[in-house]
């Protein structure tokens, strides 16, 4: 857990909490084994998952219990489902990266849809889930569960809003441009997320993306996430849609030459920047300037002997494999 220091000694209070928890946990498991779906058993299991949200088995128990309520009055189901959602929120605050909890929450949402339980919320269910993701990402911008949850919920809700994802990734990148997840989800959603029709607009988008990357490279040339995204752009920003892979941008040699020039400018300032040099190799090869690429690889082996093998391999492969 973040920012919480555990003392070197466990207090007697903590010890008794733990021992009573393990005792409770044992009893909760018995309920699962015996398929005891009574109110008492359910309350007991609830108490245990609240403190120990990693426990798969007990979430399974809860699903069995929830399914056993099928056919009950709609009002009762709404209440139970909302309580269960709150339980997962509590559990996530305790342990933001518990797979089992995230999965349980998605199951709840999907099941609510199947069972036609109307979980009326003020902002709408989809918005509520996005708010949860935002909150979890605010606590930890790299919590990939939250990113993934957004996707899954979108599917369940039948809402495909790549534009919002793109906009959101921009905020996250502004807050921390080393956030790999943010760049990744940006690349996944960019093609659909930005309604581009004409070539001018596409050119402008490419310029903006490259400019943003340049700010990142110059602020911190060692931050790899931005370089990965850049490589993806230089490949024309390929994306998969309707069974085939297409490229968003048509990358011309002229563009690559400009990028090579910009890359060289950074190398002039930071002659030992590994990522800049690696990118230079790639750009040179794309432009068919193999000899210069070889020279750059030699330079890389000098400044980064730890990865000698990788660079040798790089030198022996063809352009496309860089």
């Amino acid at each position: 857990m973040h920012g919480i220091m555990y003392g070197t000694e466990t207090s007697s209070e903590e010890l008794s909490r733990l021992s009573s928890l393990s005792e409770l946990g044992r009893r909760a498991l018995e309920c699962k084994v015996e398929a005891d779906l009574s109110d008492e058993a359910e309350a007991l299991v609830r108490k245990v998952v609240e403190s120990n949200p990693d426990d798969y088995t007990l979430w399974n128990y809860r699903r069995e219990w929830l399914l056993s309520l099928k056919g009950e009055a709609h009002d009762r189901l709404v209440k139970v489902w909302n309580d269960e959602l709150r339980l997962t929120e509590k559990a996530l605050l305790r342990h933001p990266k518990a797979y089992a909890t995230w999965q349980h929450r998605v199951w709840l949402l999907a099941e609510a849809k199947d069972m036609e339980i109307d979980l009326a919320t003020r902002t709408g269910l989809f918005e509520k889930e996005l708010a949860l993701c935002s909150k979890m990402l605010k606590m930890d911008a790299r919590n990939f569960h939250a990113w993934a949850h957004w996707e899954r919920v979108s599917k369940i809700a039948g809402k495909h809003e790549p534009a919002r994802v793109v906009e959101y990734t921009e905020q996250q990148i502004n807050a921390d441009f080393s956030n790999y997840s943010a760049w990744h989800y940006r690349s996944v959603n960019l093609a659909e997320g930005i309604p581009i029709q004409d070539k001018t607009a596409l050119d402008q988008l490419l310029d903006e993306e490259v400019d943003r990357l340049r700010q990142a490279f110059y602020t911190d040339p060692d931050s790899q996430s931005a370089w990965f995204y850049y490589r993806w752009l230089l490949n024309g920003a390929p994306y998969y849609s309707e069974g085939k892979t297409s490229a968003l941008f048509n990358i011309k040699d002229e563009f690559l030459k400009n990028e090579l020039k910009a890359c060289q400018e950074l190398i002039d300032l930071e002659p030992f920047s590994k990522w800049a040099l690696l990118t230079k190799v790639y750009l040179l090869r794309r432009l068919g300037r193999e000899a210069e690429a070889e020279d750059t690889i030699v330079k890389l082996t000098e400044i980064d002997p730890m990865r000698l093998g990788y660079y040798r391999n790089l030198a022996s492969t063809s352009t496309r494999a860089v």
Partner: peptide
């Protein structure tokens, strides 16, 4: 009084 940010783990 809380722990400085840099001492927090990134788990």
């Amino acid at each position: 009084n809380r722990k400085p940010a840099e001492e927090q783990c990134n788990c």
